[in-house]
Amino acid sequence: MADFAKRRLTEERKQWRKDHPPGFYARPKRNEDGSTNLMFWECAIPGKADTLWEGGLFHMTFAFPEDYPSSPPKVQFVPVLFHPNVYPSGTVCLSILNADEDWNPSLTVRHLLLGIQDLLDNPNPDSPAQAEPYKLFTTDLEAYRARVKIEVRNNPPIS
């Protein structure tokens, strides 16, 4: 595997362990056999306080390409999140996650997670990715809010 990617991710893991925003988690995926995969992380972001999303913990995976950090990781919500900018596959549509847009190699897992947390309450109506949330968000904000509340209830924090 790409040595550079590995070194970079080892360092990111180290920095994350030393200090990370409260309520978040991010770590390499663990396999049944006791190994872990540094190229595939499991992460979660808490909904921001004083927003609709408060009280939820939303899980996602980061799949890092061999040429990371030249290319961004692929980020998918598991399970799929009800959000205008999340594709039905769970993949997050965000400019900083797109190599052709705002991704740059100095961005780290930490930046991405904070960016995604921010996206939760600030959906971008110009990049619709999922039909239902997009429709509700643009047409019936009350219904959208009610639906988000269900989503928060379905994603309780790990006790």
Binding site: M1, K6, T10, R13, K14, W16, R17, K18, D19, H20, Y25, R27, P28, R30, G34, S35, T36, N37, L38, M39
Partner: peptide
């Protein structure tokens, strides 16, 4: 010590680890 075998972290200790880790 943190021990890596290829892309697999086989061991780590110190701060910033969850109990299950």
């Amino acid at each position: 010590p943190s021990i890596m075998l290829d892309a697999s972290e086989l061991y780590a200790e110190g701060d910033g680890l969850d109990e299950d880790e």
